[in-house]
Simulated scan of single mutants.
Amino acid sequence: MDDRYFLIEEARNGNQQATEKLLVNWQPTLKKMAFKQCSLNDVDDAVQESLAIIWRRIGTLKTVEAFPGWLFIIVKRECAKLMKQTHKLDEMPDDYQELFSYYSNNDLRLDLIAAIHSLPDKYRAVILLRDLEELSIGEIADKLLLTRMAVKSRIHRGRLMIQEYMAK
């Protein structure tokens, strides 16, 4: 096995020293990737977040050959996430501000808003109607011309997507 792949394989197998060395070796490459994907102000944050994700998830990598592509995807997602967070809370619609006003952590508010914005329209609509306007399942079904089961399913899927977004 090629030396560069040996380190990746060792990291995949849980060797912490190999993982540390791998992260140090690939940090310049991550930075180059981030320069192409992020705004200049977000490069360092994207690299740090990407390194943390790689550290936590290296064991899930299926093949060592997939490592460079996997890195690219991680950096791209982190840059997109940071780009969404650059929107100021004041620029968000008033109903979003009201919905998240009880969260004292501004970063959490921005993450939640970005998570909701990332939802496909059909899921965003039911989440906002249920959680912002506090409509019942039946009211949402009537308003959107859906069955109650479809509304429940969309709320469930929408919330799962928000959880997945927040876990990134």
Rank of each mutant, 00 (worst) to 15 (best):
M1G: 12
M1C: 08
D2T: 13
R4E: 02
R4L: 10
F6V: 13
E10K: 09
A11Q: 05
N15I: 02
Q16W: 04
Q17W: 10
Q17R: 14
Q17F: 11
Q17N: 15
T19L: 15
E20V: 07
E20D: 14
N25K: 01
Q27T: 11
P28L: 02
K32Y: 07
M33L: 15
A34M: 05
F35H: 13
Q37K: 11
Q37I: 05
S39P: 07
L40W: 10
N41L: 14
D42C: 03
V43L: 01
D44Q: 10
V47Q: 09
S50T: 08
L51M: 12
I53D: 01
R56T: 15
R56I: 14
R56H: 11
R57D: 15
I58D: 01
G59W: 08
T60R: 12
K62L: 11
T63L: 07
T63E: 11
V64G: 09
E65M: 12
F67T: 00
P68Q: 03
W70C: 04
L71N: 07
F72S: 15
I73V: 15
I73H: 04
V75P: 03
K76M: 06
K76G: 04
R77A: 08
E78A: 00
C79V: 06
C79S: 00
A80W: 08
K81I: 15
K81P: 00
L82K: 02
L82T: 02
M83H: 13
K84Q: 13
Q85A: 10
Q85T: 08
T86D: 11
H87K: 13
L89Y: 10
L89G: 07
L89P: 00
L89M: 13
P93Q: 12
Q97M: 07
Q97T: 08
E98Y: 09
L99P: 00
L99A: 09
F100I: 09
S101K: 13
Y102I: 08
Y103K: 07
Y103A: 04
S104I: 09
D107T: 13
L108T: 11
L108K: 08
R109C: 01
L110I: 11
D111K: 09
D111V: 00
L112C: 04
A114C: 05
A114T: 04
A115S: 08
I116W: 02
I116Q: 00
I116V: 15
H117C: 06
H117T: 06
L119S: 02
L119C: 04
P120G: 04
P120W: 05
D121T: 13
Y123M: 06
A125D: 14
V126P: 00
L129T: 00
R130P: 00
R130F: 09
D131N: 13
E133S: 14
E133T: 03
S136R: 01
S136H: 03
I140Y: 03
I140Q: 05
D142V: 01
D142C: 05
K143C: 03
L144C: 06
L144S: 06
L145V: 14
L146P: 01
T147W: 03
T147I: 03
R148S: 12
K152Q: 07
S153E: 12
R154W: 02
H156P: 02
L160N: 13
I162H: 02
Q163M: 12
Q163A: 11
A167D: 10
K168R: 15
